[in-house]
Design a protein around this nucleic acid. Sequence first.
DNA 1: GTCTATACAAAGATAGAC
DNA 2: GTCTATCTTTGTATAGAC
Lengths: 193, 193
Amino acid sequence: MDTQSRIIEAAESLIQERGFNGFSFQDIADRIGIKKGSLYYHFPAKADLGRAVVERYRQRMRAASDLIAAGEVPDYWDALELYLKPMLAFGRTPDDACVCIVLAGEVLGLPEEMHAEIAAFFDEHQVWLTSLLEGGRQAGAFRFAAAADQMATLIFSAMEGGLLIKRIKGDTAYFDRVVAGLLALLGLGASGR
Amino acid sequence: MDTQSRIIEAAESLIQERGFNGFSFQDIADRIGIKKGSLYYHFPAKADLGRAVVERYRQRMRAASDLIAAGEVPDYWDALELYLKPMLAFGRTPDDACVCIVLAGEVLGLPEEMHAEIAAFFDEHQVWLTSLLEGGRQAGAFRFAAAADQMATLIFSAMEGGLLIKRIKGDTAYFDRVVAGLLALLGLGASGR
DNA sequence: GTCTATACAAAGATAGAC
DNA sequence: GTCTATCTTTGTATAGAC
């Protein structure tokens, strides 16, 4: 892999572990075996690297929605499952969490350049999940009592919060309970799956 | 107020805004109008201050549960309302969030001394909310489909996650939707209130 | 593209005067 | 208890050689 990508990758995992202000260029240099000074050839400032990390992460987390939006996954249940896959995968390890929710904690300590990227992540997932849920309900695949946008907000918030909490406990069972609670309440389980 | 408390208070709001690695003793000195060196008389190291902040925060957030546990709030609905009050208050401002969920994001970048305090916060709320919900159900005040511990985990995670997300959007309506979704799904609204 | 060297500021922390 | 002064290390960043 090219150096730029390796830098972004190392930065992503450092952010996820310690937050944006919890690592330095030196840490990255150590992890990928390059000298600190060389990093500035690829990213003129730490803020630029931060922005690149979120951009890449955002794009990666959008992969499922793109497939689904393109009509490649006609079944609503398959679509929901595919969409939630990456988050559920984080939940299955003791130490992983969503990069954007970690960064959200530090808001005012972050360079301005990163704010919009992070906010956009939450916005697009909010919009997208809402329309998946609404579509699924109209198609008769999902059944739930509240408004679709409330539903989407609830699901997403619970997963994001759950990831942070399970991690500090080092206990994947915590996140499992979030998911189980969600499934039970959504009445999703009632509709055939 | 005494200097120690003013230091802890300033640190708490700085942590909440920027995370633990996003502020320095200099920032605190500036906020409360004292010299940086003087802070070390009260807290020998930043880690000690961090620990003190979480301890105080934890105690404050336990106030409602203590009252309720002491039998001072006989009605389950009143108890739930009182218990959730501080979190809901965070939700009503654009910039507030729970100190512990902010810190949870930085885990590996935090001094060891803080880990146990933070984990304890989440543990005690998990245990306590579970028993409140279970008690309320048995008393016929609450009605919900899932297990009480799943319910508690879901409610708490959703609020914690929701606070971080509403803050980065600067949009209190986001958190309102979390709460609305929770109420709708819990079927809590169905039982008389 | 990567390295070494270096500038410069800030952070964490200590010592000693008042 | 608070101040000034100082030390040390780290972090961000730049310059110039290879």
